[in-house]
Write a protein that binds this DNA or RNA. Structure first.
Lengths: 205, 205
DNA sequence: GTCTATATAAGGATAGAC
DNA sequence: GTCTATCCTTATATAGAC
């Protein structure tokens, strides 16, 4: 892997774990096994490097999410697949995390990918839910856009609760609770069966 | 207000806005209008001061939440009151925020109040929901503990989404979506009416 | 209790040799 | 492209006078 690649990957790791303020150029260099000059040769500084890292993380998140959405099955099944996907719960969301960094939010370039990622996700989830409603899988009274936001919030909030507890339990409960509510809102006759639930620690995203 | 009080209050503000790593003793002192010696006279250092600040914020959060829970009305109404309460959405949750600070999570003393606050909140919400189920307001199939986690997650996640978007919209949508799902899960005949929704920016918690 | 030195490390970067 | 030297600022205290 090239030095530039290693720098980006190291920055992704550190941003995820320590956030923007908590990540120093020196820490990145050491993690990447690169010298100062090397870093400042490839990138103009910390914000530039962070931008590259954030963009890549955002792109990866979209790819992974899209995989659950294009799965065959009912809307509830696809939403379940998304929420129940194996995740590194205790590390939290690498994109949602950036939301707590005032310097990230203050910089339009850094904030852009964060905002756009959630926007895209909301759009996709809304589509899936709207489709399910049209097919009669979900009650007509369900608002796809609002429900999509609720699903995303359960995910993001589940991470927060899990980190506070130092355990995935609150995350698992929240997902289970949300899917329970969603299944109850399914039009009569729709299966809305729960899928198996593998949650492991320590695994990329 | 005493110097020590001003230091604690300033720390609360800064922790909320910038987090633990992002908050320096110097910044606290300036915000409090206190000198270095003053701060180190009253507190042994940054962790000590942060502990006092976090404890107070946690206590305040509990008091505010308890107010919504002791309100008269059905379970869904009390949950609605809690979620729809006026909040400073774009500032996020002053306790949930700490969850993104590795140094806070790594220090049992600092992490304790965070963990306990969510634990307490989960217990209270579970009670409210269980009560509603017993009274026949909610379907028997609803799991109070899981649903309580889902409600908390919607709140915490709603903050995250709102900050990413720079707008309260995703938060409002998530809450609306969640209450919609919850209302649908109410036993037939229960009112589960939506309450008015005032969300303002810039207001203490 | 508060103020003013003083101190060591880290943050974030530039300059210029190789 | 990478390395070393150097620079200024901030972070986080400690020491001791007032």
């Amino acid at each position: 892997m090239s030095t530039s690649e290693r720098l980006i990957e190291s920055t992704r790791e550190l941003l995820w774990e320590r956030g923007y303020v908590g990540t120093s150029p020196k820490a990145i260099q050491q993690h990447a096994g690169a010298g100062q000059g090397s870093m400042y040769h490839h990138f103009s500084g910390k914000p530039d490097l962070a931008l590259a890292a954030i963009r890549r993380t955002a792109a990866e998140l979209r790819e992974q999410a899209e995989r659950q959405f294009t799965t065959p099955g009912t809307a509830v099944e696809r939403i379940s697949a998304y929420l129940l996907r194996e995740r590194d719960v205790l590390r939290g969301c690498p994109i949602g995390r950036l939301t707590q960094d005032p310097e990230v939010l203050a910089d339009p370039a850094l904030r852009g990918p964060v905002d756009e990622t959630f926007d895209w996700l909301h759009g996709r989830l809304t589509e899936v839910l709207a489709e399910g409603r049209e097919r009669g899988e979900l009650a007509a009274g369900l608002d796809p856009a609002d429900t999509a936001s609720a699903v995303m919030a359960v995910l993001q909030g589940g991470y927060v609760l899990a980190r506070a507890a130092g355990s995935t339990e609150p995350y698992d409960r929240a997902v289970k609770g949300a899917l329970g509510l969603l299944a109850a809102h399914a039009a009569t006759g729709a299966p809305a069966a729960a899928l198996p639930r593998p949650t492991r620690e320590r695994e990329t995203s």
